[in-house]
Nucleic acid binder design. Structure first.
Length: 747
DNA sequence: TTGTTTATTCTTTTT
DNA sequence: GAATAAACAA
């Protein structure tokens, strides 16, 4: 038969063990695949899609596959095409957010939007919620914009619209949040905009409220596949529950031990209760690890076994290896960076490919010291995350202009560029415009475009006229199908945006101009690759793509990334740095056991990235938030049997004077930093005795007793000696910052 | 209205 | 320490 012939041909191209093969070829309803780290999860998922297309004769556009990054989606699609030799253009593969955006672009009208809606990122969200907060007179001290956004996000993760909550607040504050939520949604709707959460929830609402639409997609998608299922939230669960209702072919892959996004609404329960939610589920467990040596795996198992909430499993491997895990103690963050970089340099000298080496950290802020020391040694590196290219001011300005070209109602973007470059439109003129737009029930830009007499705008009228002219020409261009690249170019010259930076001759402005040129380049290349697509698609790709999507494992570059963005990647040599209490686990997550468990999983994810060699380090002190803080080895490193790792104490490793001087000369930082750094250095030499004494007295996490507040725990310490302050969380719930020398705490 | 200085706040991870 | 907001001078 043709089928079996084809089946063999494609299964030959990809090697699978018997469990993997069973998982790929099973075809009787819901399937849950527990796939531990390095067990070939992606391989199974890819083979599954290929198998469906080739053996089950399912069309690519009948498959809905949610991956965790867009990059993974692209790679998987390409691999499937290689395996099947069938072009998979119509395949629905991407992140939940991009898949939902794709559906919503088609169905926007059914929920009152139009298909040119803008997608708002966190910065846009914050600027909107600030306005809402202002209109409700919410005091920022009590409720920060970020907090409001996260509360609203929580409601959205549960797919609860504001109208369902109205009047159900348990107290005054909850009621306030609900009102703000309601107002915020109205605001976005007016601007024809959705935030990230809306992409998912609006899809769910769309299906809930439009039976015919739901039925259409239910019959279209014969198969639903979800990768990294442990990191899905409730809204995403509702979505796949709806979509799989008709054919009941749902295939999810995940690993509860690698769930690291519960802070963003992901629910471990999704994977742990999958069998209950989808009757007749067949479970597969992949436990053979093909990535790491036995030494690394034993260590990983030892770390993760400290968690209570997990499905039982144990990874194993046939790859031998000992002495491949090392724990190192350093004196401070700077010597950690220097020494780790030395190790990296040594590895490269010994022939290890830089692309096979990664340095992983908990927070983006930790990357700087490593960047400095790598630059000093002229080792090339790629940094993932931090301030991404598309978050830069100048780029966001350009994008705001472009967004307005697509969506006239995007007030957030309009306000952003109103006076950039400066055109004498200050607060007053802006107020007038906002007032007028409210009267007219139109958006800001629409109001400007319709205005014939501009005298109301006073000193700003010329600026308003400029904007009016600019966008009138742009809309005329668009009718003539002028390319996005040319439009951006036109905007830049017409507004004098680049001239603005050229005029002030600083390094900063120079780099801004370079960034803008880079954006122009990116746009030009994108146009070539996507002839059939337009500005709308370009903007969508940008707003839904992350740094990790753009990251390429380059052979000649060492990778610097956060533990979160390292998920799904592998390297032969891995350094996990800053493994200290307060960092990993983060101070902000040490109050609750579930959060500690998540932090432990984060470490586990980092460990299991390593194939051959793993080095974990911690330091005695660290320069943070402008203070030198004493640090403690991470709690996760206790209770690991000693035979699983080597231990090296480099805490007596000093930075030599001349070493420091060369650093100052080569340091790219400003004059000001030099002083700070030398302070830091001398501090270390002179105050050594006080330093060690203070260190013994109080530690983060330590239980203390206070006369009036009772028992409590130190959650943070800053400063030394007489300046030492600490934050104590008392059992009665109060959280207070105390001067150590006055507090008279009993230990 | 604009640019500069000072004060203050808040420090995580990301679609 | 950095980024943002508020206050102030030009």
């Amino acid at each position: 038969m043709i089928n079996s012939f084809l089946a063999n041909s494609f299964l030959d191209k990809i090697s699978l063990n018997s469990i993997q093969k069973d998982a790929v070829c099973y075809d009787e309803g819901p399937q849950l695949v527990f796939a531990g780290a390095g067990t070939g999860k992606t391989r199974v998922l890819t083979a599954k899609i290929a198998w469906l297309i080739q053996n089950k004769n399912i069309y690519p556009n009948q498959i809905f596959a949610a991956t965790f990054t867009n990059k993974a989606a692209r790679e998987m699609q390409k691999r499937v095409e290689d395996l099947t030799s069938i072009p998979c253009y119509g395949l629905w593969i991407g992140t939940f957010h991009s898949l939902c955006a794709r559906i919503l672009r088609k169905e926007a009208e059914k929920i009152g939007y139009n298909s040119f809606f803008s997608i708002y990122d966190e910065a846009d969200q914050i600027s909107c919620i600030k306005k809402v907060a202002k209109s409700f007179n919410i005091d920022e001290r009590n409720m920060s914009p970020k907090m409001l956004i996260s509360k609203i996000s929580k409601y959205k993760n549960y797919c609860i619209p504001p109208k369902q909550l109205a009047g159900h607040g348990q107290n005054y504050y909850e009621e306030l949040v609900i009102n703000a939520y309601s107002e915020y949604q109205k605001m976005l709707f007016k601007q024809n905009a959705m935030d990230f959460d809306d992409l998912i929830t609006n899809c769910v609402y769309l299906f809930r409220e439009n039976n015919d639409v739901a039925e259409y997609y239910q019959s279209l998608f014969k198969y639903i596949l979800v990768d990294e299922y442990q990191d899905t939230n409730l809204a995403q669960f509702y979505l796949i529950e709806i979509l799989s209702k008709k054919h009941k072919n749902i295939f999810v892959v995940g690993d509860d031990d690698q769930s690291i996004y519960t802070w963003r609404g992901a629910r471990l329960e999704n994977i742990l209760t999958f069998e209950k939610k989808f009757p007749n589920t067949k479970v597969f467990k992949l436990e053979q690890n093909y990535r790491s040596t036995k030494g690394i795996l034993d260590f990983a198992n030892a770390v993760i076994s400290g968690n209570k909430i997990r499905a039982s499993k144990r990874l194993w491997t046939t790859q031998k290896g000992e002495n491949d895990v090392t724990i190192v103690r350093y004196r401070n963050d700077q010597s950690e960076a220097e020494s780790v970089t030395d190790c990296v340099s040594e590895l490269i000298k010994n022939g290890v490919n830089p692309g096979n080496i990664a340095i992983l950290f908990r927070t983006n802020a930790q990357s700087r010291l490593f960047e400095d020391s790598m630059r000093k040694r002229q080792i090339r590196y790629v940094l993932v995350g931090g301030i991404s290219f598309y978050e830069r001011k100048e780029i966001k300005d350009c994008l705001a202009y472009l967004r307005l070209c697509v969506n006239k109602k995007d007030d957030a973007s309009c306000e952003r560029i109103l006076n950039v470059p400066p055109r004498s439109i200050g607060d007053k003129c802006r107020e007038i415009l906002i007032k007028k737009s409210k009267q007219k029930q139109k958006s800001l830009l629409e109001t400007i475009l319709e205005e014939s007499d501009l005298s109301d705008y006073g000193r700003g009228q010329n600026g308003i006229l400029e904007i009016k002219k600019l966008f009138s020409s742009i809309y005329a261009f668009q009718e003539k199908n002028i390319s996005p690249y040319k439009i951006l170019k036109f905007i830049l010259t017409e507004t004098g945006y680049i001239t603005m930076y050229e005029e002030d001759d600083t390094e900063e402005s120079q780099s801004r101009i370079e960034n803008i040129n880079e954006l122009l380049n990116a746009l030009a290349i994108w146009e070539k690759d996507n002839i059939s697509k337009g500005l709308l698609e370009f903007l969508e790709e940008i707003s839904l793509s992350t740094d990790i999507d753009r990251y390429e494992q380059k052979d000649d570059c060492v990778s610097l990334l956060t533990l979160h963005s390292a998920k799904g990647l592998e390297f032969s040599h891995v350094f996990i740095v800053g493994c200290e209490d307060g960092i990993l686990p983060s101070t902000l997550n040490i109050d609750k056991e579930e959060m500690i468990e998540e932090e432990r999983r984060l470490l586990y994810v980092g460990i299991t990235r390593a194939m051959k060699y793993l080095q974990i380090s911690y330091t005695d002190s660290r320069w943070r938030f402008g203070n030198l803080l004493p640090m403690e080895k991470s709690r996760f490193l206790y209770d690991i049997p000693k035979e699983y790792y080597n231990y090296i104490d480099k805490s007596n490793l000093y930075l030599f004077e001349e070493d420091f001087n060369t650093k100052v000369i080569q340091s790219p930082h400003k004059e000001k930093n030099k002083l700070d750094k030398s302070d830091y250095n001398s501090n270390n030499y002179k105050n050594e005795e006080d330093f060690s004494q203070e260190r013994i007295e109080y530690k983060i996490g330590q239980m203390v007793f206070h006369k009036s507040y009772g028992k409590g725990r130190i959650v943070n310490i800053s400063g030394f000696g007489n300046d030492m302050k600490m934050t104590v969380l008392f059992n009665n719930g109060t959280r207070i910052r105390l001067m150590a020398k006055f507090a008279k705490l009993e230990t």
